[in-house]
Every structure is written in C-alpha cells, then in structure tokens.
C-alpha cells in the first residue's frame, strides 16, 4: 500500500511539470505582460522594451520557463505586479476561503444527490424516479451563476435573510455553497442512480435479504457500499473543480477565494499571478484526484488487493 501511494506521488511530478509548461505557454500567448501592468503609461514603449530586454522577457519561452521553474523549486513563484506581494503568499491567503466553499458545496451536493439518487433507483420508473431525474436535468441545464443570482434576489434582496457577498460571517457561505452544491448535485444524482441501479440487481443482495436483513440495511449498507466507487469518482471530480475555485460562483458572490484571485489577475494582466494561480490550482486538483484513487482502495477490497500485489 505504501509503495503504491509513493508511486502515485512520484507519478505526479512529471505530470505537474508538463502541466506547468502548458500553462506557462498558454498564458504567454496572451497579449500584455506585467511590464505593461506595472508601468502602464509611466514609461514609453521604448523604455518598456529596454526593461523587457534587461529582465530577460525576450528570451525564448523554454529558457524563461526553465528560469521560472528553477525559482519555483526554491518556493518562489514571483511577485504579483498588482498586489506587490509574493504569489505563493497571496494564493495561500485566499485558499482557505475556497477550501471552505468547496467543502460546504460538496456537502450540500452529497446531501441532495445521494438520497435522491438512491430513492430514484429503488423506485425505478415511478413518479418519484421521474421527478428526481427531472430535478437533476433542470439542475444540469441551469447556469449556476444564474442560479446564484436568483438565490441572491430571493434570500438577500427580497427576504433579507442571508448576505449576498463577501465572507464576513458564517452565514456568508450558505448561498455560495448551495449554488455550488446544487450544480454538483445535478450530476451526482444521475451517477448515484445509475450506479445504484447496477448494484440493486446483483444476486448478493438477494442473499442479504434472505438472511432477514431489513430493507434499509440492504440498500444503505450493502448496496450503497458497492455503488460508492462511481459516486466517489464523480464527487471527487466535482470537488477537484471546486477546489480550483468555482471561478464563476466566487465572482457572483464576491467570495474572496482563489477563483476570484485568478480572474482578477486576468483582468489586471497580472501574468505572474495568473501563471502561479493556474499551476497551484492544477496541482491541488491533481493531488485530490490521486487521493481519491487511494480512497477507492479502502472502499473496495478488490482494488486494495490489486494494489497490495
């Protein structure tokens, strides 16, 4: 097991290297750089070009990338031209808020999706099944930033119950978390349902029923445990996306997380910050996917056995 985990972590390194290069390359394609961002109109175009030459901005991409990675190894991801602070420090000051939102989001999603998905599967082809499928379909079809705005209109502006932006009190997380969660739930309902349907027809549940086990235990203990792997994968993917900052939702609720930091960096042409945010975000979601792979082993003994050997 330890060896497997170790191997997975090692495997992450080349992938992260490649991903960071791709990110570096794409951001480089975008017009404007931080010289423009910092000096704007203070310097003439010639002066700026001189500065670029001096700072090595005109070197070939690969050389600049190598220089960047060299610094990254020492924990230096450069300095934001807008905030005048180290990228690493900025990112991690915003990360807790994103983590918080991602956590509550997936909790909301699972609380909605797992019971609904199970009920739909157990009562397949009944009214309740169609109803939850339609609900899921609606959730999937709705842009979640719009849903967020509708929540704001209802709960903040009309009823005045909940704050609509920022992260001031514990109630602030409710609306963004519901927005993120409902979007994720829509996908998870389907996964849960189809995964449960697959399991529900298995012979071993008949064995369990024949033992005199009550139906609740049959479904929630025996069947769900078997149906969990696809659900974990889907939930994990969703969580990974949310960890990268639900850019749009964070923007709707002015949530001070990494998603908003990234999009603000784009808008201010803060190239160093953009590259840093993208690399860190991708790294986090890759690490999360790896963790999920490892979690499987604990849910399914068959997979565990494969890793052991």
């Amino acid at each position: 097991m330890h060896r497997y985990v170790f191997k997975r972590i090692l495997l992450l390194i080349p992938i992260m290297l490649a991903v960071s290069f791709v990110v570096y390359f794409i951001v480089d394609l975008a017009p404007g750089d931080d010289i423009d961002a910092i000096y704007g109109n203070e310097l003439t175009a010639e002066q700026k070009d001189e500065l670029r030459e001096e700072l090595g901005y005109n070197d070939p991409l690969v050389i600049r990338y190598a220089r960047y990675m060299g610094k990254l190894l020492t924990g230096d991801m450069g300095t934001s031209s807008f905030y005048h602070e180290p990228v690493m420090k900025l990112y991690f000051s915003k990360f807790p808020a994103t983590l918080n939102l991602a956590f509550w989001g997936i909790i909301v999603a699972l609380l909605i999706a797992i019971p609904l998905g199970i009920i739909a599967a157990v009562h397949q082809n009944t009214l309740i099944d169609s109803a939850s499928m339609i609900l899921g379909l609606l959730g999937m079809s709705m842009p979640n930033f719009w849903f967020g705005l509708m929540l704001i209109i209802l709960f903040s502006l009309t009823l005045g119950w909940l704050p609509s932006f920022g992260n001031e009190s514990w109630t602030s997380v409710i609306l963004p978390a519901v927005t993120v969660g409902v979007g994720q739930a829509a996908l998870l309902i389907r996964t849960t349902r189809s995964s449960m349907l697959e399991v529900i027809r298995q012979d071993y549940l008949r064995t369990v029923r024949a033992k005199g086990v009550n139906e609740r235990t049959v479904i929630y203990h025996h069947a769900l445990r078997n149906a969990l792997i696809p659900i974990i994968t889907a939930a994990g993917t969703q969580l990974g996306i949310a960890l990268g900052g639900s850019v749009v939702v964070e923007s709707v609720f002015a949530w001070p997380g990494v998603g908003k930091l990234t999009i603000d960096a784009f808008n201010t042409r803060d190239t160093t910050l953009v590259v840093g945010c993208l690399i860190l975000t991708t790294a986090f979601s890759s690490i999360l996917m790896m963790l999920i792979d490892i979690i499987y082993a604990f849910v399914d003994p068959r997979i565990k056995a494969r890793y052991m050997n």
């Binding site: 298995q202 012979d203 071993y204 549940l205 008949r206 064995t207 369990v208 029923r209 024949a210 033992k211 005199g212 086990v213 009550n214 025996h222 445990r225 078997n226 849910v299 399914d300 003994p301 068959r302």
Partner: peptide
C-alpha cells in the same frame, strides 16, 4: 424479516455472485 434466515433459509445457486464483494 424474522422468518427469513431463521424460519427459512436458502442456499443460492451461483456462489460467484451470491456474496457481497465488499
């Protein structure tokens, strides 16, 4: 539920699929 397993119990046909894998 009280009868199943205690009053009547059953040995199922296909052992490959009759046990819960987890």
């Amino acid at each position: 539920q009280k009868t199943r397993g205690k009053g009547v119990s059953m040995i199922f046909q296909d052992p490959m699929t009759a046990l819960n894998p987890v």
